[in-house]
Design a protein around this nucleic acid. Structure first.
Length: 903
RNA sequence: GGGCGAAUAGCUCAGCUGGUCCAGAGCGCCUGCCUUACACGCAGGAUGUCGGGGGUUCGAAUCCCUCUUCGCCCACCA
């Protein structure tokens, strides 16, 4: 199906209606297979893999921005002739999806344990099948040119196979191991988390100074802690070995204040004598540092909390029986804290409290305070994976945009710690390790085993699933068919750029780099583009919970995808955040909507004059047939194409769209089209209509192509109607050659002179309130050769745009307004009786004062020997020329003031 | 505690290796216009001691130091 949305001859409405155009156009692009790389193409590939959104997600503004940026890059490279692949897909999102399901169950009054593992997983699968992937559909309405024939999903059989292969390989290489240590535990999600998933945030807490009585009597020591409830898990109190005042206590014992438990006082370097009280309680099972201390001193590590963050009763595995007194059984940890404190107070053991602001970790999925917890988890050894990444970065093989993000990456690599990859969830890739209880062995398997290969005994699979990110880190090659050596893998790995938010630099980007180097021996991409965050006017990150989000689809419905795309692209400088006002959608997206409409109307005007006409090719037009305005706009176009291309290559997308924006609006519409209207309309005294049409089409065609990556729909719609484009698509039209055409400084200067005349007359007219309909007489003075040539070449335009009845070089006569022009020229607008002498005196006086102030500074500078001797000769020369020009102007102004009889 | 970024017009921000882009853009505001594509427009206009203070330099919004205020990242001081 290749229907044209706007067949030639159809009247274009004066207002651009995005919604009517977008959906059918997108369908047409897909039907034509434009987003699927041509298997026969030999062009160099350009590949981006999408940061896979959560399969259950709905599009928010941040993702809107993220995907628009990728689409701009992909469309740019597609037009440059690369074989582009933008590979889309979704992430099964272990914790997030499981949470959604659990909430659903909760509505039915059930927990996942009520329904059981299998049924729960089936439910998740059904849910994903029914509602998942919505976000991909939403990307289509943004115009994203993903290759939908290659859509992937991290929990699909193919990608699951890659995950399993990787796990087994790491197992074989000894890079994955079972570790018994304190990890971050989310009591609400009921799972362990990696270091990255437990986010720091500052909290106003309290430092409690608590007395632990010496077991043999004779006083107490004071322990400072922020977590009194964990004291039931204390196995020692530690002091710094160099702390002279406390050293003598080492070896003695204290009693836990709320239980009949004796614990020793030990000495350990870990303790900072200057902090708190100098005594630290050691709770190995609920604090990673304390665990290390406990190991050094061979102390036990009793758990005193359950997996859901309640105080354990004696039945809890690992809890030294009877540690938690009965009144605390089952109490939530924060409630337990209150009660412990109350009891301490009652017993007079709470010495003092002081406010203490400190960072505590929260679950990145549900914001629950994370509980450090001793447990058995699977870990990946990261050091061996990080080293090649560091080497590649230092060798300059990886480019970060903005550059400074590279140092974040480097620092993280240097402080890398092993990655906890096991999650106590049900939704995800189950860990492919089987245990044999009979012979006590365990083994990772590529295929599900039937029986223990050693003893033939029954096997039991590990209950845990893998961290979601354990599948994401393989995304750049698992999506291409790895571990098979598929044609896609050969052709499209490695990719080029990864475009994402800085928040997931460590979660995802860094680990993809590790995996790419380790399993594919090549970096997965050469450039990491990290864009800013979408914020509201209070600079808060847009989020569902704050209710300050903007629904991108709402914006698309109101103003069109192109308006959204333009606004976010144009508003986003490298490395900065973008601020949008959720309370003022119109204000936020007006610039995009307005520009789309402007483009539309420029298109209407151009098409009105060129549609259905046979026009000469620009290259065939003799140079001499081109008017000054023609040569000017071609020169401007060439500059614009150069700027836009350079900006895109440097990932300065705001400049990349800013260049054609200003070209189209400020140069093409405001000046060029106005200049050639008489020729377009075939007025008798305006020859060269077809030349003007040819240049106009050429310029418009080029600017449409320059804008296409950002505004795909409107550019396609208009471009298809240009002569000769019948049945073609701008999607694969060649990117304008930045070296084609000529940059002509002389032409630009001459045209600028004509513009200055028009501007000066317009300003004078506005100043004196000359009615728009009335024409005025204007005389010029002090024209040099170039100036005169410029005026001759653009006389018709000047007269038309400034509404001049007569333009000459006659001496000023009668009352009128004076204005200065570039060079030494000036002009005079005859205003007859309309002139207000007082006003004109004031105006010219101000102008003179301004000029003289500048001149004074300039002269001082030129009189300064250190300037003239030290500054580069061309700078000095430029300043001299400027001084002469301004002096002449000042003199002319003074003369005029005198002539007017001003004070 | 360490590291980094930002502070420019009422708002959101450009301003790349210091000099003719020492003040710009969009939105908003004011004035006048429905001028044969566009009132989502045209023309004209106002508004800023470029966060404060020091310094380097012939010359700084642009480099250095310092202070203030925001923001981000990292971090085992309980």
């Amino acid at each position: 199906m290749t229907t044209k949305t706007n067949p030639p001859g159809t009247e274009l409405a004066p207002q651009y209606e995005a919604t009517a155009i977008e959906a059918p156009l997108y369908a047409d692009w897909v039907a034509r297979g434009l987003f699927t790389p041509d298997p026969a193409s030999t062009a160099r590939p350009y590949v981006i893999v999408i940061p896979p959104p959560n399969v259950t997600a709905v599009l928010h503004m941040g993702q809107g921005l993220n995907n628009v940026l990728q689409d701009v890059m992909i469309r740019f490279e597609r037009m440059r002739g690369r074989t582009t692949l933008w590979l889309p897909g979704t992430d099964h999102a272990g914790i997030a999806t499981q949470n959604v399901m659990e909430r659903q169950l909760a509505k039915e009054g059930l927990t996942r344990f009520d329904v059981g593992r299998e049924a729960f997983v089936r439910r998740c699968e059904r849910f994903v099948a029914e509602t998942g992937g919505t976000i991909l559909e939403q990307l289509k309405s943004l115009g994203c040119s993903c290759d939908w024939t290659r859509t992937r999903y991290t929990l699909s059989p193919e990608l699951s196979r890659a995950v399993r292969e990787v796990f087994v390989r790491l197992w074989e290489e000894g890079l994955v191991y079972r570790g018994h240590r304190v990890i971050h535990w989310c009591p609400r999600c009921h799972t362990s988390l990696s270091d990255e998933e437990a986010e720091h945030s500052d909290v106003d807490g309290t430092l409690y100074h608590i007395r632990y009585l010496l077991a043999d009597g004779g006083g107490h020591v004071t322990v400072a802690t922020t977590r009194p409830e964990t004291m039931l898990g204390d196995v020692a109190v530690a002091v710094n070995p160099d702390d002279a005042s406390k050293r003598s206590l080492v070896g003695r014992e204290v009693m836990l204040p709320i239980a009949e438990i004796r614990i020793p006082i030990i000495a350990d370097e870990h303790v900072d004598a200057a902090f708190g009280s100098g005594f630290v309680k050691i709770t190995p099972a609920h604090d990673a540092d304390d665990f290390a201390v406990g190991q050094r001193h061979q102390l036990p590590a009793p758990l005193v909390m359950t997996e859901d963050g309640r105080m354990a009763d004696a039945s809890l595995e690992g809890a030294a029986g009877g540690r938690v007194p009965a009144p605390y059984f089952g109490l939530d940890r924060f409630e337990a804290r209150k009660q412990v404190l109350a009891l301490l107070k009652e017993r007079g053991l709470l010495e003092k409290t002081e406010p203490h602001r400190h960072a505590i970790r929260h679950c990145y999925r549900c914001a629950t305070v994370v509980e450090p917890r001793l447990s058995d988890q699977w870990f990946v050894k990261m050091q061996p994976l990080a080293e090649p990444a560091l080497a590649a970065y230092r060798a300059g093989e990886l480019r970060f945009i903005p550059e400074r993000r590279g140092t974040d990456f480097e620092r993280w690599l240097l402080n890398i710690r092993d990655w906890n990859i096991s999650r106590q969830l049900w939704w995800g890739h189950r860990i492919p390790v089987w245990y044999c209880d009979a012979c006590g062995t365990s083994q990772a398997y590529r295929e599900d085993p039937k029986a223990c290969p050693t003893c033939g005994g029954a096997l039991r699979q590990d209950e845990d699933v893998l961290d979601t990110w354990f599948s994401s880190w393989l995304w750049p090659f698992s999506t291409l068919g790895w571990p098979e050596r598929t044609p896609d893998l050969t052709r499209f790995y490695p990719g080029d750029v990864i475009v994402t938010a800085p928040e997931i630099l460590f979660f995802w980007v860094a680990r993809m780099i590790f995996a790419g180097l380790h399993f594919m021996d090549r970096l997965p991409f050469h450039t990491v583009y990290l864009h800013g965050t979408v914020r509201d006017t209070q600079h808060r990150k847009m989020s569902k919970s704050l209710g300050n989000g903007i629904d991108p689809l709402d914006v698309v419905r109101r103003y069109g995808a192109d308006a959204l795309r333009f606004t976010v692209t144009h508003g986003l400088a490298v490395g900065t955040d973008i601020v949008l006002d959720p309370a003022d959608l119109e204000g936020s997206f007006a610039s995009g909507r307005n520009f789309a409409n402007k483009l539309w109307n420029v298109g209407r005007l151009v098409l009105q004059h060129v549609e259905g006409r046979a026009l000469p090719a620009l290259a065939k037009i003799p140079e001499g047939d081109l008017a000054l305005a023609d040569r000017w706009i071609l020169s401007r176009l060439r500059a614009c194409a150069g700027d836009a291309t350079a900006a895109l290559e440097a990932f300065r997308l705001n400049d990349a769209v800013g260049a054609p924006y200003h070209f189209l609006w400020d140069d093409f519409a405001d000046w060029y089209l106005e200049a050639i209207k008489p020729r377009l309309f075939g007025e008798a005294d305006a020859p060269g209509g077809d030349v003007a049409r040819a240049v106009a089409v050429h310029g418009f065609d080029a600017v449409l192509r320059l804008l296409h990556p950002t505004m795909p729909y409107i550019t396609e719609t208009l471009w298809r109607r240009l002569p000769g484009n019948d049945g073609a698509t701008i999607v694969t039209a060649p990117w304008p050659d930045a070296r084609a055409g000529r940059l002509d400084a002389g032409v630009e200067r001459e045209f600028a002179f004509a513009q200055a005349i028009v501007n000066a007359v317009r300003a004078a007219r506005a100043d004196y309130g000359v009615p728009p309909g009335r024409t005025v007489a204007v005389s010029l003075a002090g024209l040099d050769e170039d100036g005169r040539r410029a005026v001759d070449a653009t006389r018709a335009m000047i007269v038309r745009l400034a509404r001049i009845e007569q333009l000459d070089e006659a001496p000023p006569a009668g009352a009128g307004a004076h204005a200065v022009l570039p060079g030494r020229a000036s002009l005079f607008v005859a205003l007859g009786g309309a002139i207000d002498v007082t006003k004109e005196c004031a105006r010219l006086g101000e102008e003179l004062a301004r000029l003289e102030k500048l001149l004074a500074g300039l002269r001082a500078k030129l009189a300064n020997a250190s300037f003239t001797s030290r500054a580069p000769a061309e700078v000095v020369e430029g300043e001299r020329a400027k001084e002469q020009e301004w002096s002449a102007k000042a003199a002319a102004l003074s003369a005029k003031l005198k002539a007017l009889g001003c004070a």
